[in-house]
Write a protein that binds this DNA or RNA. Structure first.
Lengths: 340, 340
DNA sequence: CTGAAAGCGCTTACAG
DNA sequence: CTGAAAGCGCTTACAG
């Protein structure tokens, strides 16, 4: 079928109305399932739609009502399985409402993020779920407000003026530290990496607070490079500080994977020579041996929740800003033992 | 800002035109960077756009020209890191053309996939990149053609009438088998799982052909359950056949991860007691110890290629259907040795 | 280069 | 329940 034929064969609501011998207004009411239309008429119209192969044109409808049924989702890194799970939760929940999600990857770049927001705005998205790129200025929030763009921040926050769905990183750190302390550990390192943002700060602060609460040295922070392969090869950094840790908490799933591999390379046995706790608990925590004890943050559920909040926000723009902070759970598996 | 104020403050092209003392037509030409407009006029119009905070309304434009600048991407499983990388390639390449991608997850369910295609059609997508759910009937292709919907199949194909971008699974199998044979292996198992589709068939057929070419027994197929945890616990199935394999090729990355873990649980050393080859080579092949020798399929590049083909197809609907089949590369690492 | 006009496919009062 | 009409914001000939 050539594109010309296609264009000619476009069936409109008026065609449907004529075929069913009703007015266009009535056909439109049937389309939107209005109770104003009698069931016999409705059936006739629906039959006409089938007969003619009618396709609803949301774009045209949108021009009248100010609602596109499209929402945007911007994440800093699609390749990270953690964000993939987040996205999967967003898509699931948004799809369930009959809407559709435009996906974009900011690649942790602020200018690219601006461009994407602008593009989404031109597409008339009803709102966006945003995991702000590291370095995003707080005043982005004012711009978005000036645009009248409903947004919910997810996992990272830049402003208290916008909805936020995230996780209780401090609580997670406490769970990890308390658990290690119960095993007898006192010299606990926190292995971090990646760019600086609210979730980074909350994890580090949470770690320090949890350590201080136990009167442990809160300053054993190990800075690791961003790439998976490089992390494994940087495992020696764990032992480069004055204090030799007997346990290490990982910033996230990538750090845990990398260190697990690196420790193996060093000939060290996890759980015996050194205890290891993961964070963010993505599916393959199960695939590491020994199985990785991990603080679970439930990215899928967070994505669903963020989507739900956005839908509410769109329906009711004047709601005060909300914060939803999910609890973490500690999944005890086999990577921690008593200090050597 | 209330939603009412927002509506009132909508700046249209006509406002811009008046502000710049030109006609709406001229303003429209400036918008689309037509060379017909003089540079002085152009500058005045652009200034007016800035002054007024004009936002281009793609939806309205779309109603005139039959092009939404939206494309759809449907994958069977977002959570699988392999598909996340694919998607990342698609998003990247589509974004580079200024278009936007609507993402959806079929969850490997055919009816859901139909619903998603219909929904995307109502949104007027210019085309879709589809990784068809297992069980998709070939006649979906006819329906899509009747719709006049440009589509490129990716990774899995259901019809020769539509563009396809995939990987040379048979070639990959040959690489794996030949490599193992060069190490002295003859009893090689293929560990499969998941639903049936073209990529499944091509891998299995490719495995058999490669084995037959070496005059090895081509029938050591091990069927594993779909979930990561269950795979590890099913490792004993490798040894339940009459012939005990000395090496196993994994259907994909999940199988490789699961079996690596399971073999560890059985007290077996990979590369010494049993050789293991992965397939699909996602990032964490590096995180397994020993490092996993793997057949790389490059999902990101495939996503980019599929996006590029779709853009071409949209521009030129009458092109004959094309097939792009990427070569795999064998990444030799440390999980294979000589037979025990 | 510009202006006036038609039209894309829908929704929404409004009068019947 | 129905019909006629206006309008959402843009693009596209067309005549100047």
């Amino acid at each position: 079928m050539s594109s010309q034929e296609r264009k000619k064969s476009r069936v409109t609501l008026l065609d449907v109305a004529r075929h069913a011998s009703v007015s266009r207004a009535t056909a439109s009411l049937v389309l939107r399932k209005s109770p104003l239309v009698g069931s016999e008429t409705r059936a006739r119209v629906e039959q006409a739609m089938r007969d003619l192969g009618y396709v609803y044109n949301i774009g045209a409808a949108r021009l009248r009502v100010e609602r596109s049924q499209i929402i945007g989702a911007i994440v800093p890194n699609l390749t990270n399985p953690f964000f993939a799970e987040l996205l999967s939760g967003i898509e699931e929940a948004i799809g369930a409402t009959g809407k559709v999600v435009i996906l974009a990857n900011s690649g942790e770049r602020v200018e690219r993020q601006s461009m994407l927001l602008q593009r989404m705005r031109e597409h008339g998205v009803d709102g966006v779920v945003l995991c702000p790129a590291a370095g995003t200025e707080p005043d982005l929030s004012e711009q978005l407000a000036a645009w009248g763009m409903p947004v919910v921040q997810v996992l990272r926050h830049i402003s208290v003026d916008m909805d936020y769905v995230g996780v209780d990183y401090a609580g997670g750190m406490r769970q990890a530290v308390d658990y290690l302390a119960s095993l007898g550990h006192e010299k606990i390192a926190f292995a971090v990496h990646g760019p600086f943002h609210s979730a980074y700060r909350e994890r580090v602060d949470g770690f320090r607070d949890a350590m201080l609460a136990k009167a442990f040295d809160p300053e054993i922070l190990i800075h690791l490079p961003p790439q998976l392969g490089e992390i494994a090869d940087s495992t020696h950094l764990l032992f480069a500080k004055a204090t030799q840790p007997t346990a290490v908490i990982c910033f996230n799933h990538l750090v845990a994977l990398g260190l697990a591999a690196g420790l193996h390379d060093c000939g060290l046995t996890i759980g015996r020579d050194l205890s290891l706790i993961g964070f963010d608990d993505v599916a393959d925590a199960e695939a590491i041996r020994p199985r990785l004890t991990s603080v679970s943050t439930g990215p899928t559920a967070i994505g669903e929740m963020a989507a739900r909040l956005l839908v509410e926000r769109i329906a009711n723009p004047d709601l005060p800003p909300r914060r939803v902070v999910n609890d973490t759970t500690l999944s005890v598996r086999q990577s921690c033992g008593r200090p050597a």
